[in-house]
Computed example of a mutant assay.
Amino acid sequence: MSIPPVSYKRHRFPRELIAHAVWLYFRFPLSFRLIEEMLLERGMMVSYETIRRWSLKFGVTYARRLKRKAAKPGDVWHLDEVRIVIGGQVHWLWRAVDQDGYILDEILQTRRNTKAAQRLLTRLLRKQGVRPRRIITDKLKSYGAAKRKLRLSVRHLSHKGLNNRAENSHLPLRKRERVMQKFRSPSGCQRFLTVFSAVRNLFVPPTTNTNALTRHNHLIQAFAQWNVVTSLAA
């Protein structure tokens, strides 16, 4: 079953410009005002508020279509959580990545306990449809307790040094957080993460790709898929 094309009706700017602005925002640590300046240098006068509205309207649509075409993830899951302050309240971003750095899922929660870890694992099992060969976490005991509650019979390695894959996956978000001067609301943060991670999964090559030619081929394929997802190839 084919996916219906994205509708750009009632937008006076061409679809190529809209998709490009949204790509710039979610792919690089750029503010709306910087993107406005970059487009103006190319002779395209678009306000930063218009770019913000495009990101809100089309970002989630693009992410949803990207996930339908997502590559098959690996069978080793790295789980980790990172502290995020939103409106003065502490939240915890729980994230799972595979051995290639592909983001499997992430969820913002107010707790850092067994219930929160169990919720992440439950979502992962439901979305992936298969159990992993191995789970790697830091020394937070909530992961082991959640695993026992779910009766998961998979190998679980708990060691600070083994979980660098998940810990490093937080760095791009930290850069964006600084550019955005922190997130305004939990729902806005979760919405941004949905698009940000989907775009990152598409364009960032697997960590095993160390050859320049392989990375270039990956990007060429990623741009081709992006054009299909944004209906630019139609």
Rank of each mutant, 00 (worst) to 15 (best):
M180T: 03
F203V: 07
I135E: 06
N209R: 04
C189V: 00
T137C: 10
F223R: 06
R133K: 11
F183Y: 10
P206C: 05
T194V: 04
V228H: 10
L150E: 12
V154H: 02
A198G: 10
Y143L: 09
A146L: 10
C189K: 00
L171G: 07
L202S: 08
D138W: 03
D138I: 02
V154P: 12
Y143K: 02
N201L: 11
F223N: 08
G144I: 00
F196N: 08
R174Y: 04
L202G: 10
P132L: 03
Q221E: 14
Q225V: 04
A145P: 03
G188D: 04
R174E: 15
H156K: 05
L162Y: 13
W226G: 10
R215T: 01
Y143A: 08
G129I: 02
R176M: 14
T208L: 08
E167S: 11
N201G: 11
S142L: 07
S197Y: 04
I135G: 09
S142C: 13
I220G: 03
L173P: 01
R200T: 11
M180C: 11
A145I: 00
N211E: 09
N201F: 07
K149M: 10
I135F: 10
H170C: 14
T208G: 06
N211V: 05
R200N: 13
L219N: 02
S153T: 10
T214P: 05
T208S: 15
R133Q: 14
S169N: 11
T210C: 13
N217Y: 02
K141F: 07
H159N: 13
L219D: 02
R191M: 10
P206L: 01
K139H: 04
R174Q: 14
F196G: 12
P132F: 02
